[in-house]
Design a protein around this nucleic acid. Structure first.
Length: 393
DNA sequence: ACCGCGATAAACAGGC
DNA sequence: CGCCTGTTTATCGCGG
């Protein structure tokens, strides 16, 4: 289909060997994926948040981006000592696959993480407790440009979940299957002009992001919804969401981890508003970036998407009762009804765009405070109060 | 027992 | 021609 580009032919996303090499805080695969896109997608956003990875020009955005990447990378608990690449996720698994059941990936969780029933499970070899949807979501979200080609999604998964490196290749099929069926994901064509690489880029449908995030949190913190702080209503910098703490006490997590996770979410929420290629309302940005959203057949109302949606719909992304949520709900509902409304949101969003900068600022500050309070350190040095650790769990 | 959800397998088409 | 990508259908297991 269309113009394909961006993928460097030389890099093999599925090289399992890549794992363990993520040290530098960069994801080989993701990075490779982003570079090509950097030409188009990464430029998205006021200051090309995505490209900041190498361009130290925009400090704030860079910070945000850096955080974004690193947080996501370390995505979980595990603390500083945890291996940036793989460990954490599995730690999580350990804690979540516990007593608290999660509906989300129950089947997979039980079937996999319990791979070694006896309790002795090789963290690196046990299947992650995340559903493919979430894995894909994480992979995409962690990319600077918020979009990845399937190949890089594979790569991300392989890198963070070594389990798949030894798993039969069927999982790739599942990934593709998910991308296609799950309404949460949208296909975006690569910018015209570049033709290296196959396939399209996939991004998270902005309207479903809260849903996915919610699902992710639920998975990590079964009761997460209770502390979920909607992106749309960021806590004020002066008053970090302390109310978030209580919940995880019942868990084996450390408060700091929790905070980090929360902060990550906040940061994500904030940053994503700047670069998400899918979050472009109207033809404006899309056309501007040479991006073309391949609309999904409205008829396609697969259970996957609806399921995920309904999941969070039942607990509507407690994302605050704001327009944001209304929109989400509306869209989700529409999606459920078989209509893929992607850009029918009129002024609501536009109106929201104004305060974006403010929100972003607040979010960043709040997150920073949170992390700071949590004593989470950042590899960026003391100068930055941002931390990495994302126990999104 | 039923249903929803997620995982998995497989077939197929189209592009590179 | 082989591989990759993307779509679609079917089936199975699990949990509510």
């Amino acid at each position: 289909m269309g113009p394909i580009i961006g993928m460097s032919p030389d890099k093999k996303a599925e090289s399992p060997g890549s794992q363990g090499v993520c040290g530098a805080g960069t994801l080989p695969e993701a990075e490779s994926a982003s570079s090509p896109m950097a030409t188009s997608l990464d430029r998205i956003g006021p200051a090309g948040a995505g490209g900041s990875r190498t361009e130290p020009e925009d400090d704030e955005l860079t910070n945000l981006n850096w955080l974004h990447e690193n947080l996501l990378q370390n995505f979980t608990l595990g603390g500083p000592e945890a291996q940036p690449c793989r460990g954490p996720l599995f730690d999580i698994e350990g804690s979540i696959s516990s007593p608290h059941g999660h509906s989300l990936s129950s089947s997979s969780t039980s079937s996999v993480s319990s791979g070694s029933p006896g309790g002795e499970r090789d963290p690196l070899k046990s299947k992650p407790p995340f559903s493919f949807s979430l894995l894909i979501y994480m992979a995409i979200e962690q990319s600077p440009s918020k979009s990845l080609p399937v190949k890089d999604i594979y790569g991300w998964i392989l890198e963070h979940f070594p389990y798949f490196s030894s798993a039969p290749t069927g999982w790739k099929n599942s990934v593709r299957h998910n991308l296609s069926l799950n309404k949460c994901f949208r296909k975006v064509e690569r910018s015209l002009g570049k033709t290296n690489g196959k396939g399209s880029l996939w991004c998270v449908h902005p309207e479903f992001r809260p849903t996915l995030m919610q699902a992710l949190k639920k998975l990590h913190f079964p009761n997460a919804h209770a502390f979920y702080t909607p992106p749309a209503s960021p806590p004020s910098a002066s008053s970090p969401p302390r109310h978030l703490f209580p919940l995880e006490q019942g868990y084996s997590m450390k408060e700091s981890d929790f905070d980090a996770a929360t902060a990550m979410m906040l940061l994500k929420s904030a940053s994503e508003q700047n670069i998400d290629p899918c979050d472009q309302e109207g033809p404006i940005d899309l056309s501007r970036r040479d991006l073309v959203v391949v609309s999904r057949d409205p008829k396609q109302d697969h259970t996957y998407s609806s399921s995920l949606v309904s999941h969070s719909q039942q607990q509507p992304p407690r994302l605050a009762a704001h327009e944001e949520q209304d929109r989400s709900a509306a869209h989700a509902a529409a999606a459920l009804s078989g209509h893929t409304v992607i850009r029918s949101l009129p002024s609501a969003k536009r109106a929201r765009r104004d305060p974006r900068a403010e929100l972003d600022e607040e979010l960043k500050e709040a997150a920073g405070s949170l992390l700071h309070l949590a004593g989470i350190r950042t590899s960026l040095g003391a100068s930055r109060r941002k931390s990495r650790k994302l126990n999104s769990k």
